[in-house]
């Protein structure tokens, strides 16, 4: 799977599962920080979910300021222009106008293209946005980045297609519980449809990460988890998807980290074990 980095631009990974609550935003936020801090990479994170949990997780309280100051966001990327701001009329879309600086060290940055709740309006408008617009924007403006991570919304829409168009790889988080594999057939079908319609685009599933987002009862989830893991393993084998050996342990530290409370990360501090395996797998 290892890919040579820097030859033709960043590795782009979309984090997706067509089932909600599996940890997509948390994983995207923590992988972004890990890639920047530990792997020393120049990173762009993109929030493609109108719920904007990734934006809130990376910006914390400054997300309120971003909203009140009407900062640029993924909404403007899909609109393909910056709306008038009291004079001068519409402005051309620039990378600077729609990115928020999260972390910076020397020449490297962790940037974010944040989302807003009104992003969902794009789905209800009569004219649907061009699903290739994100890929075009990234190819024009972010070729110097090492890594781009896209946090997708949990339901299939034009945004999902836009994420596929922009991505080299797909990362699938899953919770080992009864409903775990519900999103798998949908996702497999969604990817197959995309491949059929875009034969020149090579998009691979980087792998599936097990997110133990529930208390394991002291016996590693017991028979319920065992049953779910058998189903997950079977589905992954059917689709030829890799399962990462390092799992995310259950920890109340994850929601704390996401809201900027660093008082006690608990087992969330062990996220790096998966992050390390993931980036090694990608050759990053």
């Amino acid at each position: 799977m290892a890919k040579a980095v820097g030859k033709s631009g960043p590795i782009t990974v979309c984090v997706i599962n067509l089932k909600g609550g599996v940890g997509k935003s948390t994983i995207t936020a923590l992988l972004s920080r890990y890639a920047f801090n530990t792997r020393g990479k120049d990173v762009l994170a993109i929030d493609l979910d109108p719920q904007a949990n990734l934006s809130q997780g990376l910006m914390h309280q400054t997300y309120s300021t971003f909203l009140s100051q009407k900062g640029g966001s993924i909404v403007e990327v899909f609109a393909d222009y910056m709306p008038p701001q009291g004079g001068g009329g519409p402005q051309p879309l620039t990378a600077e106008a729609v990115t928020e600086l999260i972390l910076e060290k020397d020449e490297r940055r962790l940037d974010l293209i944040p989302s807003r709740f009104d992003f969902s309006d794009a789905l209800t408008n009569a004219v649907r946005p061009d699903p290739r617009i994100l890929a075009k924007f990234l190819s024009k403006n972010f070729k110097s980045k090492d890594l781009i991570l896209i946090d997708c919304s949990p339901t299939e829409s034009v945004f999902t297609t836009a994420a596929y168009h922009a991505s080299d790889y797909v990362l699938i988080p899953v919770k080992p519980e009864f409903f775990a594999t519900i999103g798998f057939p949908l996702l497999a079908e969604s990817l197959a449809n995309f491949r059929r319609n875009n034969k020149g685009h090579a998009i691979d599933v980087a792998g599936v990460v097990i997110n133990n987002a529930f208390y394991d009862g002291g016996n590693d989830g017991g028979p319920e988890k065992g049953r779910a893991m058998r189903a997950i393993t079977q589905e992954c084998a059917n689709n030829g998807w890799h399962i990462f050996s390092k799992q995310m342990y259950h920890s109340r530290g994850y929601p704390k980290l996401m809201r900027g409370d660093y008082s006690y990360p608990g087992d969330a501090a062990l996220f790096w074990t998966f992050a390390s395996e993931f980036f090694d797998h990608l050759g990053l």
């Binding site: 809130q56 914390h60 309280q61 400054t62 997300y63 309120s64 300021t65 909203l67 009140s68 009407k70 807003r116 709740f117 009104d118 704390k256 809201r259 900027g260 409370d261």
Partner: peptide
């Protein structure tokens, strides 16, 4: 510009900001 915030993200403030931005837009 943004270092005057204190503490972790607070749902109330974010909700208020979303409401304010929503009224502006819609």
């Amino acid at each position: 510009a943004r270092s005057h915030h204190s503490g972790p993200a607070d749902l109330g403030e974010i909700s208020d900001a979303i409401r304010g931005a929503g009224e502006d837009l819609r």
